[in-house]
Structures are given as C-alpha cells and as structure tokens.
C-alpha cells in the first residue's frame, strides 16, 4: 500500500462511520489533533477538581460534603479515562503532564475563575458541567474509538454532577433573600464564562472545519452554544433566576434565543494566562506533582525489590 491508498482507506472508513482504532493507519494531523484535544480535555478534568476541592471542607451539610467529594473523585476518574485514551495515540502520561505544567498544553479557561461562595459550587455543577455535557454527548460518537468509549463512561457519570448543582441553586433560590441573592450573584459571574466554554465563534475557530470532516467533532461551537443557551435560560427561570444578559430574547423565527455580544477579549486574555486564577491553578498542579514524586519512586522501588526477591527464591528453589 502507498501513502495514497492508506489515506483513501482511512477516508472511506470515516465516511462510512467506521471507528478508527489505535493500530489503524491515520494521518499525522488527525493523530496530532486528537492528542491535543483529548489531552486538553483530560487536563480540564484534573484542573477542574481544584475550584471545587476548595469547598469540600466547607460544604454546608454532610450530604453536600459526601456529594461534592464523589463529584470531585469522578472528575479525577474522567481525567484518567481521557489520559489513557490519549496514550493509545503514542504520547506518554509524563509527556502530557509536562505539557500541562510548562503551559504548553491548555485546559478549559473556566477553571481559572475563583469559587467565592457556596453558590458557586451550585453554578459550576449546573452551568459548567451542563455546558460540558452539551459538548461531550456528541463526542460519544467521535471517530476515534478509545476517545468515544471514554466519553460514554464520562457522560454516564456526568449527569449527576449537573443535577446536584441545579439542586444547590434551587435550594438557595428558594431560601432567604440573602441566599437567593447569592445564587443570582453566582449565576451572574458564571454565565458568560460558561457560554465561552464552547470556544470561539465558528468563523474564528481554525480547527472546526477539519475536525468536522474527520468526525472528531459532530457539531460546531456556535451550534452547541445556542443549544446550551436555549435550555439553560428556561432552567434559570424555573427557579426564579435570570441570566445576566439584557439582550436575551426569544426569536420566534429562528426558534432560538438571541443573545448579547460575547466579550472575546476576556476569553483570549484568560486563555493566554491572565485570568484571575491561572497561576494559582498551575502552581497547585505542579506542587501536587512534585510533592508526590517520592511516592511514585518508592512504589516503583518497592515493586522492583519484591520482584527481585521472588526471582531469587525461585532460583534457590531450582
């Protein structure tokens, strides 16, 4: 087979919705795009534990604490599923960590915003996990097998995350005036960053067309964003909260909500590392990695020692 026929074979599979598996031939750019996207996704799950972990000790009841602990543990698990999927493409775990720690790889900008009150934990579950689900459900049918399988697992677990977040918001919104204000304030601060989670407008998204062609992506950023806004606006009204956008208006003709302009300067600023918590998050990751080095070394040394001891015994017995 020539490069040409490898390519044809690959294209035919994509067109016929046949999944690509790790040992199949794939174009270099397909591999690179997947490594970039899956590892960013994994990093986002891992860094995403930080803003919420911050509130585990301060959750207002034992029930909330147990739930938040389970959610944060899930995020760790999701990071692991995704790192494993990326590893099948030939990058190692350590290389990915290194890219994260040196700032070469990005993670979702949303986690560079601070969690100031308990209501922020509600807003994150409802909005941030809600936006993530909107993104992730179509990825269950993405063209790369290990990525799709990881996403099926993630989506199964993610829906409790959104529901527990909405429940927190609902409880606050039905509470005292101060609690309701707290819920609205959290919605005000998390609304726009959540909407930006879908990434730049289609016209400014350099990877979208190719990713759609490869069936890595199934919907464009703007399609998913619109879908998210349409359902979330209604959810907010259900509990007496209002999304902080004066231009929000139902458009009968389009069958969608119209919404105001997005502050893309802020988005790019946070992506470039100037968000409120970029440094704090990265420092926390690096510290966890460096402080854990002796544990990793010790476990490896221990297993080698045991292996050697066992081999020694076998030699003696022989």
């Amino acid at each position: 087979m020539t490069v040409h026929s490898f390519q044809e074979h690959f294209d035919a599979k994509i067109d016929n919705e046949v999944m690509i598996e790790p040992r199949d031939w794939m174009p270099d750019d397909y591999r690179k795009t997947l490594i970039r996207q899956i590892s960013q996704h994994a990093h986002s799950e891992i860094v995403g534990m930080l803003p919420e972990g911050n509130w585990i000790t301060r959750a207002p009841s034992l029930r909330r604490k147990a739930v938040l602990l389970a959610k944060v543990q899930d995020e760790g698990g999701h990071g692991l599923y995704l790192y494993s999927a990326a590893e099948t493409l030939g990058i190692t775990r350590d290389e990915m960590y290194d890219q994260l720690h040196t700032g070469k790889a990005k993670y979702s900008s949303i986690f560079n915003y601070p969690t100031l009150t308990w209501a922020d934990i509600g807003a994150i579950g409802w909005l941030v996990d809600g936006a993530a689900i909107m993104n992730q459900v179509p990825l269950c049918r993405t063209s790369y097998g290990p990525y799709a399988r990881a996403m099926v697992r993630v989506c199964k677990e993610e829906s409790f995350h959104q529901r527990q977040g909405f429940e927190i918001m609902m409880t606050l919104a039905n509470g005292t005036d101060v609690q309701k204000k707290m819920a609205q304030d959290a919605l005000n601060r998390w609304w726009w960053p959540s909407i930006m989670m879908f990434g730049p407008n289609d016209a400014d998204s350099p990877h979208t067309a190719q990713s759609m062609r490869w069936r890595i992506k199934r919907f464009t950023n703007d399609e998913l964003r619109q879908k998210f806004i349409d359902v979330t606006v209604e959810q907010a009204r259900l509990i007496g909260l209002e999304a902080p956008d004066p231009d929000l208006k139902w458009n009968e003709e389009r069958g969608h909500y119209d919404f105001g302009p997005i502050n893309w300067d802020e988005f790019w600023n946070v992506v470039k590392g100037n968000g409120p918590c970029n440094k704090e998050r990265l420092d926390a990751r690096k510290k966890a990695w460096e402080d854990g080095a002796w544990v990793r070394d010790a476990a490896l040394a221990h297993s080698e020692k045991r292996k050697a001891r066992k081999e020694n015994k076998e030699v003696k017995a022989a």
Binding site: M1, V3, P22, R23, D24, T88
Partner: peptide, 12 residues
C-alpha cells in the same frame, strides 16, 4: 510499506 507500519505500532 514498512515505513508506514512503524507508525502503527502504538499499542491499543
């Protein structure tokens, strides 16, 4: 063919 096969050795 070999040069392409090398790329396929990433283990599932």
């Amino acid at each position: 063919m070999n040069q392409f096969i090398n790329k396929n050795l990433y283990g599932d």
